[in-house]
Amino acid sequence: MEEIEMPEGMNPEVLKHIMNPQNYGKLTDPDGTGVAMDDKTGEFVIFTVHLSQEGISDINFATNGCQDTVVVGSMFTEMVKNESVEYAQGAITKIEEKLGVLSPQQKICADMVFNAFVAALINVANLAQGKKEEIHIIKSEESCEVAEGDSNE
């Protein structure tokens, strides 16, 4: 994947993800469902995953958040689909490096994506332990509502 240009965010790769987000939507009968929720703004990212012995056989995400969230979610799911869970966890670091310098809002958006994915894996683990949990929710500690002047934009 070429270097992603954020916050301008308008190289052809980014435009492709904005116009046609990959793995967007929800899976039927997922093995795990995770949500990252920002109570302050009502923004969420939700992941559904299908796991097989080899790893992540299918993955979908959805959000009511901004385009930065969509781009990161689209790139991340593309990167981890059909890969092992261990690879996917490492991919969070890889994609953070790829994104480079982000504004505080963009960093929070990216973290919401990663947290939702982690929440889906926690949901898988909880269900495997017999816990009744429809969705695992991680509340965001920070909100993308950043005070004026804090942004790099």
Partner: peptide, 12 residues
């Protein structure tokens, strides 16, 4: 740059 808006999740 015409593109469909993405689908709404029911949480929305």
């Amino acid at each position: 740059i015409l593109a469909l808006p993405r689908e709404l999740h029911e949480l929305t």
